[in-house]
Amino acid sequence: MPKLLKAGSFTIDAWRRLDADAARIADGDALLFPLPVWLARRDALLARDSSHTGIWLNGDEEPEQIAADIHRFGCIAVNFPTFMDGRGFSCGRLLRERYGFRGELRAVGDIFVDQLHFLRRCGFDAFELPDDTSLDTARNCLDAFSVHYQAACNPA
């Protein structure tokens, strides 16, 4: 089980990714909908409360596609297929800076602690990390630098 790092601590994960072929969608569960599922069932899903409606975006999926619905989501998870695939960094900034997303922005998939500082500067505020991650190391990595040379997303 991966651990979720949020606000400097490991926390219980309230969100679950919906299987693409799930037959039934429970109303009360906090679900992350894969983008194709959201797009296919959008009309029905729009009725859900944003507090338990989220999106799961893959590295090659475009944040533009959910721009219009952005305030209907309580959480957006951006998947990093490999830790060398940096598209998610751009995706994070676009969601925050261009589309004004205010909910939980979560980095999931193949990320590692040494990327946390940059991820946070790209707007992410929750991080799915491997089970054996040390909290101290993760915190150090998050705060690797106190000085920055360029504007990006800064945590509130």
């Binding site: 830790f83 060398m84 695939d85 940096g86 960094f89 751009s90 900034r93 990327q115 500082h117 940059f118 991820l119 500067r121 790209c122 630098f145 920055h148 040379y149 360029q150 990006a152």
Partner: peptide, 14 residues
């Protein structure tokens, strides 16, 4: 140089 140093978005380019 300053702008590109530790630019958070562009550390894992193709």
């Amino acid at each position: 140089r300053r702008w590109s140093t530790f630019h958070p978005e562009f550390a894992y380019l193709p």
